[in-house]
Design a protein around this nucleic acid. Structure first.
Lengths: 348, 348
DNA sequence: ATGAAAGCGCTAACAT
DNA sequence: ATGTTAGCGCTTTCAT
């Protein structure tokens, strides 16, 4: 319990006066200890302690023309998927001495402007975009020249920027192949929101796997979702309303949340998962391992995505090229209890 | 697609020169339009547009001695509970022109230091603490004089700071009373991590409700958890290992995640929820409404907690007293399908 | 209504 | 090894 009343914080000049040195020496003693003698360093540190001096980060940034801060833009902070990616980013960035500003779009495009502003106003030295698109401010899109920018998790098609992601198409194809190998012939796809890059890629993987297996592609089997639990439930209703002999026997959902909504609704309708119907999700959210049955899904190396993207941004903020220039990491199919051989009656 | 090559960003002097006015006039035209003539204002704005000038926020902060930024410290950003609180905070703060730095403790005390540093270095004008304790940096705890600080979600006992929270004790008591009214007499409590303020309060509510109903308090019925799914599962094993006649017939868990882990494990062991055993959680996370059966739980007005805390901080950052000085909001019991009358055989 | 000038707190040349 | 000096880019008196 300090008894000091709100006295104005000490500035570098106060420390200098107390230590009997110049403010430049204080600055050096703190930032480049090897440039001052052991003795003066000790005097300065003592003066720092007794004044409670903390360097003013704003003044430092202005002078040094570096904020030692990065901005990370996430589409929705409530999505726990990003928490783990953020950990990886934070690990790398704080090791390099950078702080982190997390910008939450909250799935609203209108918030773009605020973050473009932060990016352009000199408050950060670099930007990580996890939102699958360029930020559009009032004064146009975020300028990609000048400020280091790295894209991760969701690619931005056409952007000439370093990107870190998984091969969503290949992973989706592997998920669908898993169902095909279990004997399923009528496999549905539950999509993400229209235009979303993850949906585009996962849908491609789905179609590709069907084509490779020589299975016909039925547009009725591509159901529209938006990554939420509710649209998963809706999709189940849609499938239940199909004539029994023409129904799919398995579903690949573009994310876990929809897969779980789907699964619950099918169970409520009296179907048994996986013996009557198989379900595969995408993302391996924690909950996919808690539900009954546990959900077969695809796991991305989230922490490593974050680490790699962070490292690349640090490289760029240091003035170099990112190492590597771009990166695609593998995703892993996690076979669990929501998938099983197709029911016997299901004809090809 | 801009063709301008990385030319240095325009500064206020560039705009002034182009507009044929002084930099002071540019500053005024932008920040206090009523101080300049319509005509000069138009000239200035045109010059701003053609140069692409964006004010440097760092220089502005240094000069104005206000960063127009607040720091929000959350214990764990992966916990979706905080996402909704953050929305409320963001709403209020951005309406007042403040930006937000989200500091994620990631449940690690070692990260305190970094945020104390941010708070003390002039980068922010105020701090919101959602982590239930004071931050402890290398130079001691975060100084509560000088910098506006508001506590929300998790109270900090003994801190003379404005706080916004729900009455956890009352809500926990209501949850347990609900079980008592359903005829349960042997009710277990599954705790949070030792020392956690939420656990302390919810445990008190549990004991209080038992005492009020004249039910004996059995220390064996207070199980140790840590808010994770796994300890929920462990608690189920512990209860299953008790002699059948002495087992509790219901459990109140200090959060939903544990309640769900508990519930799943009980089901796996062949018990039917709620006819064999009733479960109540706390927090009303999304998933509590997706699981089978849906979980009876307690909902906090998360968004409003955030809004209120944000408003109080804005008041303080504007130099005034927070309005109100402190606030306790009501939490609401959500009876769903995981609670039912006690099994017939259960004696008092 | 506008301009000139000072200075926010710090660091990096340059000098010694 | 240390001090002196000149800004970083902006806002805000104080003049006019």
């Amino acid at each position: 319990m300090s008894d000091r009343r709100a006295q104005p914080p000490a500035r570098i000049a106060d420390v200098a006066r107390l230590a009997g040195v110049s403010s430049a020496t204080v600055s050096r003693a703190l930032a480049n200890p090897e440039l001052v003698t052991e003795a003066t360093r000790a005097v300065v540190l003592e003066a720092v302690r007794s004044t409670g001096y903390r360097p003013n980060a704003v003044a430092r940034s202005l002078r040094a023309r570096r904020a030692m801060m990065a901005l990370v833009v996430v589409p929705d902070i409530a999505n726990p998927f990003f928490a783990e990616v953020l950990r990886g980013i934070d690990e790398t960035l704080s090791a390099a001495g950078y702080g982190l500003i997390i910008g939450n779009l909250d799935n609203h495009r209108e918030k773009d402007g605020a973050f473009v502003e932060v990016a352009r106003s000199g408050q950060v030295d670099g930007v990580l975009l996890l939102c699958g698109r360029m930020l559009e401010g009032r004064g146009g899109a975020l300028d990609t020249s000048g400020l280091p920018i790295v894209v991760a998790c969701e690619a931005i098609p056409g952007a000439a920027l370093p990107q870190v992601e998984v091969d969503n198409r290949a992973a989706a194809a592997a998920a669908v192949r898993h169902l095909i190998e279990l004997g399923h012939r009528r496999i549905a796809y539950l999509s993400g929101p229209a235009g979303n890059v993850l949906d585009v890629e996962r849908r491609q993987g789905y179609r590709e796997a069907l084509a490779t297996a020589g299975l016909g592609y039925d547009p009725l089997f591509e159901l529209a979702g938006d990554f939420t639990f509710r649209t998963g439930a809706d999709a189940a209703q849609a499938i239940l309303s199909m004539a029994e002999g023409r129904r799919p026997t398995a579903l690949f959902a573009a994310n876990d949340e929809m897969a779980i909504g789907f699964l619950k609704t099918m169970q409520t309708a009296g179907l048994h998962i996986p013996s009557d119907f198989s379900v595969v999700g995408f993302d391996a959210i924690d909950y996919a391992d808690y539900c009954t049955p546990t959900l077969t899904t695809v796991r991305q190396p989230r922490r490593n995505i974050g680490r790699a993207a962070g490292r690349m941004l640090v490289d760029m903020m240091a003035g170099g090229a990112p190492e590597p220039l771009s990166l695609t990491l593998p995703a892993e199919l996690l076979p669990r209890d929501s998938t099983a051989p197709a029911p016997a009656g299901a004809s090809a």
